[in-house]
Design a protein around this nucleic acid. Structure first.
Ligand SMILES: NC(=O)c1ccc[n+]([C@@H]2O[C@H](COP(=O)([O-])OP(=O)(O)OC[C@H]3O[C@@H](n4cnc5c(N)ncnc54)[C@H](O)[C@@H]3O)[C@@H](O)[C@H]2O)c1
Ligand SMILES: NC(=O)c1ccc[n+]([C@@H]2O[C@H](COP(=O)([O-])OP(=O)(O)OC[C@H]3O[C@@H](n4cnc5c(N)ncnc54)[C@H](O)[C@@H]3O)[C@@H](O)[C@H]2O)c1
Lengths: 209, 209
DNA sequence: ATCACACTGTTAATTTATTCACAACAAATA
DNA sequence: TATTTGTTGTGAATAAATTAACAGTGTGAT
């Protein structure tokens, strides 16, 4: 049917969505492509091109209506069967994530967290209870959770991933530096901050000769 | 001189570097492009193409020598004048970063952290002392720090960025969701985990129809 | 009314990134 | 020695992403 949707377009649409949420909160009703593009650090043409994916149309006179464009993007991006998220590993990173995440996405919710440390089990952080990792398969299946965040040490990441996938997880955000071996239908995104800083350091210097 | 270097190539080179470090620790001396490519989830051709940026050559018989290829990539990626990193904001995220980062990059070191909360000032975490944010300009100038990680609340991110840039920072890794307004010579990378999870959720569902 | 304007949506052109296809090569084998 | 094998490095081809160019359109000024 559709031609393949690229990662970059989706990243940009999600960014536009964020910006539009802010604009809506500020009570701004309409916006032109060049204004929104500036806020997103893209060209106006690219923005308009990206919006072609949606079935949404602005007006040459008043530009885009913030609320309806926002809805159109949400509609395109959000898949309601991927709304529930599990978090594995309640160490430094896991807690930072949990404290930050809840309520920040209109659709996505972390509805369970897991750890192997009994000190952490049964604690409730940001409205989310922590269960022992051994309960993960049954809870993930029962709640039909499809998305997981991995924040366990590198040495446990692969075994945790195997277990999650076995239980039905199809999307993983992996904060450990471990490269995961997963079946083809599972989507994995890696977030290693060391790599991120190295990239920044390279391009910062590169830009300045 | 050279044609422009793309972000994706650099991200991949950094990933190859990581993998090669692991291989070196495992005592593996040589590796073929198809093996390394598999570990990095790229095609062998792409890997070889990427290595064309380096002035490094493998052998048709034994492939690449792990140690020398690693050095070649380090040589290409690491710019010694961007080795020092500052961290601003010692909350949940800041502490997670500090605990994780030190010693994981051969070149980069977080040599100072800053917070406005006097409770945190003078604490030493992972060998890095925390200073009051008001001291940031002088320390950054004195130590000639060029790279910074921002982990303060969204509401303070722009003012912190302005101050850092004024003090000489040219590369920022921004963990707050705030879009920063910066001069053209400053490179900014954004790491918002809500956006990341939303991307994962989209593509996980997309992949599975 | 009509014109100039400022904007959107989209086709076409261009640039960038990836993949294909193969020459060159060194070792192993017959 | 000649041949086969498996690899690298890269020019050429293809695919993907971005940018340019412009037709269409409602608005407000003249
Ligand atoms: N991407 C980043 O920015 C970043 C930053 C810091 C750390 N990290 C990585 O994230 C991961 C977590 O880092 P951290 O600083 O939070 O570590 P941590 O040691 O503070 O926390 C790890 C948690 O995982 C739990 N755990 C360990 N094995 C488990 C298992 N098999 N099942 C369930 N839970 C298990 C531990 O009990 C602990 O609570 C590490 O892999 C680290 O390398 C990433
Ligand atoms: N990218 C992610 O994965 C992720 C995850 C969680 C939080 N966040 C974001 O990262 C930022 C920090 O989150 P957190 O959970 O660590 O928050 P936090 O409240 O735990 O920590 C913020 C820290 O910044 C300090 N601070 C505030 N204003 C400051 C200023 N002007 N100068 C210096 N220090 C200042 C505070 O004293 C505090 O120590 C927030 O913007 C949050 O939105 C990002």
């Amino acid at each position: 049917m559709n031609s393949k949707i690229s990662e970059k377009v989706i990243e940009r649409l999600i960014l536009y969505k964020n910006i539009l949420e802010d604009l809506e909160n500020q009570g701004i009703l309409n916006i032109y492509s060049h204004q929104l593009a500036k806020m997103a650090d893209v060209t106006p043409v690219q923005l308009r091109r990206d919006l072609m994916l949606l079935s949404y149309y602005g007006k040459p006179t008043s530009g885009y209506e913030v609320s309806t464009l926002l809805k159109a993007i949400e509609n395109f991006i959000y898949k309601s069967d991927c709304a529930k998220v599990a978090l594995v590993g309640l160490g430094h990173v896991g807690r930072a994530i949990l404290n930050y995440f809840q309520g920040r996405s209109k659709l996505l919710k972390i509805i369970a967290s897991f750890d192997k440390d009994y000190e952490k089990v049964n604690r409730v952080i940001a409205g989310c209870r922590c269960y022992h990792i051994s309960e993960a398969p049954s809870i993930i299946k029962r709640e039909d959770i499809k998305i997981a965040i991995i924040a366990v040490p590198q040495s446990s990441a692969q075994e945790v991933a195997d277990m999650l996938i076995e239980a039905g997880i199809i999307g993983i955000l992996n904060y450990s530096p471990m490269r995961l071996n997963v079946p083809a239908n599972v989507y994995v995104e890696y977030r290693d901050m060391v790599r991120a800083v190295e990239k920044v350091a390279f391009f910062a210097c590169y830009k300045n000769q």
